[in-house]
C-alpha cells in the first residue's frame, strides 16, 4: 500500500484508520449479552411458573441464586477471552467496568432489601422495577459509548418495563407478572440487540 502521500491523503488515511479502529467490535462481542439475556429471561420465566404452581413460597426466589455460579463462570470465560482479544481499547474496558459494577450493585441492593424486610414486605416489591431500571441505565451507557443504537432503544424498553412493572403491581396486586415483564425486557431490549451486534460484527470482520 505504498504510494506518495500528499497532505489530503495523509489526513484521509489517519481519519479512516482511526474510524476503523474505534468502530471495531470484537468477534463474539454480543455473546455475553445474549447469554445473560437468555439466562435472566429463563430464570424469570421459571420464577413465574413456580409461583403459579406453588403459590407465594419464599423458597421459590432461591432460583435467582443460580446467577451467582453463572456469574463466576462467565467472568472467568470473559477474562480468558480478554487475553485472546486481537485489540484492546478503553471503550471495551469502560463497558466491562460498568457491567461489573452493575452486578455488584444489584447484589448489594438485593441483599440490603433482604436485610431490611422479609420476603413478603413492601420493599421486596421494589426489587424488579429497580433492577429493570438500573439495567436500562447500563444498556444506555453501553449503547452510547459503542455508538450502537439498538442498545439505546433497548434501554428505553427497560425503562418502560420498570414503570409497567410498578404499575402492574398496583393494578393486579400480584408480583407474578413482574417476572414476565422482566423476561420480555430481556428478550426485546437485551437479547435482540446482542444478536444484531453479533450479525454486524460478522459482516464487518
Amino acid at each position: 500500500m505504498e504510494k506518495e502521500l500528499n497532505e489530503q491523503d495523509s489526513l484521509r488515511l489517519i481519519t479512516e484508520m482511526i474510524t476503523q479502529a474505534r468502530s471495531n467490535f470484537q468477534k463474539g462481542r454480543g455473546d455475553g449479552i445474549v447469554f445473560w439475556g437468555y439466562t435472566i429471561a429463563i430464570i424469570a420465566l421459571a420464577n413465574f411458573v413456580l409461583l403459579q404452581i406453588f403459590g407465594y413460597q419464599p423458597a421459590i426466589y432461591w432460583v435467582w441464586a443460580l446467577t451467582i455460579p453463572i456469574f463466576i463462570i462467565h467472568y472467568m470465560i470473559e477474562l480468558k477471552r480478554g487475553k485472546k482479544a486481537l485489540v484492546k481499547n478503553g471503550i471495551n474496558e469502560i463497558i466491562g467496568h460498568v457491567w461489573f459494577a452493575y452486578a455488584i450493585s444489584s447484589a448489594v441492593f438485593v441483599t440490603s432489601i433482604f436485610i431490611i424486610g422479609t420476603w413478603d414486605s413492601v420493599v421486596f416489591l421494589l426489587i424488579n422495577p429497580a433492577l429493570i431500571g438500573m439495567s436500562g441505565l447500563c444498556i444506555y451507557v453501553t449503547g452510547r459509548v459503542c455508538r450502537f443504537k439498538p442498545f439505546v432503544y433497548g434501554a428505553y424498553v427497560f425503562w418502560c418495563g420498570a414503570l409497567i412493572s410498578a404499575i402492574i403491581l398496583v393494578v393486579c396486586h400480584a408480583i407474578d407478572f413482574q417476572f414476565l415483564i422482566l423476561a420480555l425486557c430481556m428478550i426485546i431490549g437485551f437479547v435482540t440487540p446482542g444478536h444484531i451486534l453479533n450479525r454486524k460484527v460478522d459482516q464487518d470482520v
Partner: peptide
C-alpha cells in the same frame, strides 16, 4: 510520512493495544 507506517500509528493512537493480525487486516498489507 509513509502510507503504511502512518496507518499503523493512526490505528494505535485510538486504541490501547492491537494484535499484529488486527493491524494486518485493517491495513490490508
Amino acid at each position: 510520512h509513509a502510507q503504511l507506517r502512518l496507518a499503523i500509528v493512526s490505528i494505535l493512537v485510538s486504541i490501547e493495544e492491537a494484535d499484529f493480525v488486527f493491524i494486518k487486516d485493517k491495513t490490508g498489507t
